[in-house]
Design a protein around this nucleic acid. Structure first.
Lengths: 150, 150
DNA sequence: TTTCCTGCAAAACCTTTGCAGCAAC
DNA sequence: GTTGCTGCAAAGGTTTTGCAGGAAA
């Protein structure tokens, strides 16, 4: 935990930014909720517990800064709010989402299934892939068994 | 063209909805610009040429209706506006996007590369896949050659 | 008549921006 | 003292909603 904070602090310093108390509180919230996909509002409410005087605009500005630094990833599931994920320490992110259209739950798959596809893309289309995003919509196992019960 | 309008008309009628002149104008715009990913505002401006008295709210309501009927797909590239794509006549959509981070161009790949992955998902995770979305971010061939020139 | 649909305007919503004050170096 | 950061409030942009009128069955 502290090591990751330090690592982020150094990344910011390398670009001339400071890890202010507000920014640190925001980063800690992201670290403590790494499994979730928090919206800016979510982050704001959680940060408030640690730093009650913080403003929503600062949270937005921090999330934008972290996105630019590739420390977090801004994702959009189509519900009108942006969500933010801490990136793994590796530069590329390799996780996919399973979104249940019944209960709304979202789970992650950490495997990378797209390596061969990316090679194909570069060869056949001349497109240099830097990142990708893969989401599946469907019905999760839990909802399937509940539907079977009814 | 007329056949596809008819097909959509029947889908609507099957659910008790009418294909009003405003809705038809909207559908025609989508059909005529199938290659693009139009925002609601884009659709609105194009529809206006055919039906000048139409309101933006009606376009939104129509696009929402068509989305619910699975006639169009609402997608979100993270720029803050929803975009709408006509779905192919087959129920599943199988195209992927290549988004160039340099020039912003977007091209489509119509192949379906994910069939095997979806089977794997159903078997290993018990997740019933209904749809998916796959986008790649990177640098397109054109921008790569321009960068090489500089 | 009853139901659905429309246009307009207002509201809601998320996000960004302007600005004055503050903190750090 | 300069620079960057913050909080607040206001503005911005997209999308939704309320409502009265209109069209269709």
């Amino acid at each position: 935990m502290e090591a990751r904070i330090d690592s982020i602090k150094q990344k910011l310093h390398a670009q001339g930014y400071k890890l202010t108390p507000q920014r640190e509180a925001t980063v800690r919230v992201l670290l403590e909720n790494e499994a979730d996909h928090l919206s800016a509002e979510d982050v704001f409410m959680l940060v408030r517990d640690k730093a009650p005087e913080i403003g929503l605009a600062t949270v937005y500005r921090t999330l934008e800064l972290l996105t630019e630094m590739h420390i977090v990833e801004k994702i959009n599931f189509g519900d009108g709010v942006a969500r933010y994920d801490l990136r793994a320490d590796s530069d590329k992110h390799h996780h996919h989402h399973l979104i249940c259209i019944n209960c709304g739950s979202m789970s992650e798959i950490k495997e990378d299934w797209l390596g061969p596809l990316e090679e194909k893309l570069e060869q056949e289309y001349g497109f240099q892939v830097l990142d990708h995003r893969l989401d599946f919509q469907g019905v999760c196992a839990k909802c399937q068994s509940e539907q079977a019960t009814n």
